[in-house]
Every structure is written in structure tokens, then in C-alpha cells.
Design a protein around this nucleic acid. Structure first.
Lengths: 220, 220
DNA sequence: GACATATTCTAATAATCGTTAGAATATGCG
DNA sequence: CGCATATTCTAACGATTATTAGAATATGTC
């Protein structure tokens, strides 16, 4: 008979992961890191928190081995310690969306039309993008595009869209995506495009969702 | 521009799920509930905690909508509120096993040979069981077998094995499974069987792992 | 309807966690 | 080697959480 104490140790270890993902701010940091590696400074700015606080949260995430740090010149870059961490974030968010009515209501208020994709619509979108029937644009900052993006998508960061809008074909459907269902960049991009007469829609997927669905990302 | 405050609300909702899975005891309760529905009393006994404490933890899990309760006669039965919750438990445990060296070490100490399965070995095992080349036994309590079990597995609860050992063929390989990688019942079953001259081995999978791998369970 | 029993609620304590501010450390650059 | 700057460490506070014990509630049975 194996001792209770020993068994408790196992659950305690898993609870370390649970504790790491029990704070809203840490979840936000994980989502940002799922877009690619970032410095503490960039993370703090993105999450709108103090650098010291960001550092403290990153320390917790690092202790749970969900992220790893590497010094790169004057800055320290953090990244997720594996694709499974990104998948865990997607899984947590999906369970929350599925079971917490409050979250559903909040999301409906923020995003008029939540376009959730399934396996089939994902593959069909990729096929249409490959053929050029639609233009898929990645409206995240260009460094996030560089660390992985949807196949056949082109980079068109939100704050460059107005200057570069002529690059987009006026006769084709534009499909915008950003960091995922909680990110508002694609919605803003669609609003801008529609103002200028383009046919545009957004999808809820970001690269973490795409990857968690078992589909490949492009790197170039 | 959408307000920070609104965005924070989204992460707070997901963090509710994170908080729910940040306690070792709650994780243990989730794992037990992944085997089928149970009363508070049964859960407390299984996790070796006070009924009052079990009730308090269940309240937290219920608030996060990970479990739901239903009155059934004198007892109140709890169950997971969806298969995605069971998959979340598997996902958390897998991330922990992958990234936390401490957990790997602890598991190696407890379980001599951790037999982790991949997609191929799972299908091949099911095929061999179907043909009758191996006998797959489910050593969990019979009510857990009844709420779902591996295909072609027969129920042989750990505390009945010695009386019923004659039912097993002496010339075939016996494969035992229980609740999952953290459960010690299959290891104990294998030890008993080997003592009596049977060829036996265990697998790490329980029904949650099997299901999370996308494979079907049997109900009968 | 009253009793027995299972479960939850309330209250209280100790322990833990999030956040902030100030000091300390480490690296790159001159 | 020393300066500038990015990052982390330390200390402290208020807020939250886990656990326990006792009281209260709800259901089934007689």
C-alpha cells in the first residue's frame, strides 16, 4: 500500500501548474507569449501593468516551468516553454467559454459576431486563401507575424493598415485575424476596412487556436 | 478603442477556471469524478479528507461550473459538467509531467515502469483485445466500470481479484488499467497476478486519457 | 409530522498571495 | 573600469484562501 503522503505529492505538482494559471494577469501574459517571445518591458506594456509586477508574475510562471527566459543583449526575452503550454491556454479558455455564462455574455457584448471556427471551416479557409479567393491578413505587430502565422496570410499590422490599404484588392473578401478570441485588433481592422469600402470579416482564431486544432503554421 | 477594464473581465473569467484547478485536493476530486459520478461521502473517503472540506472544495468547483450536483435520494451526486473538464485535467497533468522534473522523479520512484501509450499503441492494444490476444481488465470499483470503460475490457475490481483470479486465462497476457497515471490500483493488481503465476502488465491510461486521445469508450 | 442522517452554511484562525515601493544586481557600452 | 539601464530581489501591506469546528438546512423514512 502506497502512502497517502506520496500520492499527495503528485497532485501538488499538478497544482503548481494550476496556481500558475489562476491569475488573470498571468493568463494574459501567457496569451501574449503564445504570439512569440517578448521582453519583460514589452509584456508589461502590452498587459498594461508595472514592469516590476510583470517580472513577479513571470517569476511564478517560470517556477512552474511554463515559460523560460533567455538573455538577449540588454533585454531578457521570455517565451513559452513548449507548444503544449499554448494548447493549455486554449484549453482553459475554451472550457471557460463553454461553461461560464458570464464569459459568453461579456464576449457577446464586446464582439458583435463571434466567428468560431471548426475543423472544416479552418481547412476550407486555408484552401480559399491558397487559391487566392480570399486575402487573409494578420493584423498583429510584425514581430509576432514573424514568429509564426497562418498559412497564406500576409502581415498587415493594425497601425499600418490606413497607410497600406491600397495594397489590398478591393474586389476580394478580406479575412482578418489577430491573437485570438480575446483580442480586439481584428475587429478594429475590419471596422477600418469597411469604412473604406472593403468587404472584410474577422475570425476568432489566432495562431494558438490554429495550432491547437492540429493545423500547421507558416514561418517565413 | 475598447477599455482595459472590459478586457480584464475576460481574463478574470478564465482565471476562475484556473483558481478552481489550483488546489491539489480539488484536482484529486476532479480525477475521481472523471471516473463517474460520486456522492460527497464517497469523494471524501476516496480523497481521504473530511466531508466538510470535500463539500467546501466541491462548492468551489461548482462555482467554476466544472462540476454539477444532482440530488439522488438521500445523497447528492456530483459529476463533471462535461467531457472537456476531464480533458482539461488530462491536459494539466500532461503539462505537469512534461515540464516539472520533480513530478517525473516522484513518478519514477512510485511506479517502476511507467507505460505511457501513444496513439498507435492504443489502437494496437484495442485490436489485440478485440481479437482476444490479450485480456484487458479494469481494476476500478465496479460502479466506475459501469459509467464507462475501455473497449473489450472486463471488470475485475482490485479487491475481488484474489477470489476471482480463476476467471482469468493463465496462458494469455493480462493488461490492467485503473484511473490513470496517478492511480496505483493497476500496479497492485499486476503484483498480485504475477504472484500467482500470471503474465501481467499495466498501462498508464485510464478512461480520461483514453477519451482525451480521441478514442471511444464502451458503456455496457 | 418527527427523527435520523447527509450535506451545506457560518465563523474564526493561520497561511498564502497580489501589489507596490525601494534597494540591489547584471549586462552592454563607452 | 565605471556608467546607464533593464531586470530582479526584498520588505511590507492588505486581501484572499484553506482548514477546522459548530450550527443549520434538507431530504427520506418511520
Amino acid at each position: 500500500m502506497i502512502k497517502r503522503h506520496t500520492k499527495d505529492l503528485l497532485y501538488e505538482q499538478v497544482a503548481r501548474i494550476g496556481k500558475a494559471v489562476s491569475s488573470p494577469k498571468r493568463l494574459e501574459l501567457l496569451e501574449i507569449l503564445a504570439q512569440g517571445e517578448k521582453t519583460v518591458e514589452a509584456l508589461a506594456a502590452e498587459a498594461r501593468i508595472d514592469i516590476k509586477l510583470a517580472s513577479a508574475h513571470l517569476k511564478v510562471l517560470k517556477a512552474a516551468r511554463l515559460v523560460e527566459a533567455q538573455r538577449d543583449g540588454r533585454f531578457i526575452a521570455y517565451r513559452l516553454s513548449g507548444n503544449d503550454v499554448s494548447a493549455l491556454w486554449v484549453n482553459l479558455r475554451t472550457v471557460a467559454e463553454e461553461h461560464l455564462v458570464e464569459l459568453k455574455v461579456a464576449m457577446d457584448q464586446i464582439f458583435a459576431a463571434p466567428e468560431n471556427l471548426n475543423a472544416e471551416t479552418r481547412r476550407s479557409l486555408m484552401e480559399k486563401a491558397r487559391r487566392g479567393d480570399v486575402v487573409v491578413i494578420d493584423v498583429r505587430p510584425s514581430d509576432e507575424y514573424a514568429s509564426g502565422h497562418l498559412p497564406f496570410a500576409r502581415s498587415m499590422p493594425l497601425d499600418e493598415i490606413l497607410q497600406r490599404i491600397k495594397e489590398l484588392p478591393a474586389d476580394k473578401e478580406i479575412v482578418a485575424y489577430c491573437r485570438g478570441p480575446f483580442c480586439m485588433m481584428s475587429a478594429e481592422a475590419v471596422a477600418l476596412l469597411k469604412e473604406h469600402g472593403y468587404r472584410a470579416q474577422k475570425i476568432a482564431d489566432g495562431t494558438p487556436e490554429w495550432q491547437a486544432a492540429g493545423l500547421p503554421l507558416a514561418e517565413s
